[in-house]
């Protein structure tokens, strides 16, 4: 068999399989999943939004590991070498910088709102952090010659802040009663908001540093 009929045959079989899958999935009843048990447990947590309750209370350990993955990605990028100046050809003219002077405060406000809104509705640390990171990336693009980054120690503290605060609150649950990654009753709203704010700052900084793509300091400055 030459390749052409063979690819036609495999394409036809794949289409048939896709059709069968679609027809099998078409009539599946709507499955509620765990939403009933989450709704039943909402009284035990301080936040009003089920998604935030799952992410930062019921399954907080998973979220901690997700943040550790972002942290590891930054450390791996730093181990690859020093970052070069970004971009190779900076954007000329006053339009981008002038626009950014208005856009960045708005982006910071939106990011902060998303973090805070996570307690009651859609939003949260990753979304708010990503919006903050976007304004940071635009900052780097507009003023590439002076990114105004903190000292290496400050950057290290910044990227680990989220994981550190989350882990500290999680471990503090052990002697205080609620167990590892648990919140004492009545404290959960404040603690979740603290964790979310720290996490969003770390995520935003991590994403900007990933965009820079390397250690933003010279080897001599490494202390």
């Amino acid at each position: 068999m030459n390749p052409r009929p063979l690819s036609l045959l495999s394409g036809g079989l794949s289409a048939l399989l896709a059709l069968l899958l679609v027809s099998a999935l078409w009539d599946t009843p709507v499955h509620e999943g765990v939403s009933a048990s989450v709704a039943g447990a909402m009284g035990h947590t301080g936040v009003a939004h089920p998604v935030t309750a799952v992410l930062l209370d019921f399954r907080a350990y998973d979220t901690l590991l997700e943040m550790a993955v972002v942290l590891l990605a930054v450390l791996a990028t730093w181990s690859l070498g020093r970052c070069d100046t970004l971009p190779a050809r900076p954007v000329q003219g006053p339009v981008m910088r002038g626009g950014l002077r208005h856009l960045i405060p708005l982006a910071v406000l939106t990011g902060g709102y998303l973090i805070w809104a996570g307690g009651a509705g859609s939003g949260g640390a990753f979304q708010g952090g990503a919006v903050l990171a976007a304004s940071g990336v635009m900052w780097v693009l507009a003023w590439p010659r002076r990114p105004d980054l903190p000292a290496p120690l400050g950057l290290r503290v910044g990227v680990t802040l989220g994981v550190a605060v989350f882990l500290a609150i999680g471990v503090a649950g052990l002697p205080l009663g609620p167990g590892f990654m648990g919140y004492p009753p009545g404290w959960s709203y404040g603690l979740i908001l603290t964790v979310e704010t720290a996490a969003a700052c770390s995520i935003a900084l991590s994403l900007v540093l990933l965009f820079l793509g390397g250690r933003p300091w010279r080897d001599a400055e490494d202390g």
Partner: peptide
């Protein structure tokens, strides 16, 4: 919630990277 994360991280930040 997933839509927000997808737009901000999936499209925005991953696109920039």
């Amino acid at each position: 919630d997933v839509a927000l994360a997808e737009a901000a991280i999936g499209a925005g930040v991953t696109g920039a990277l």
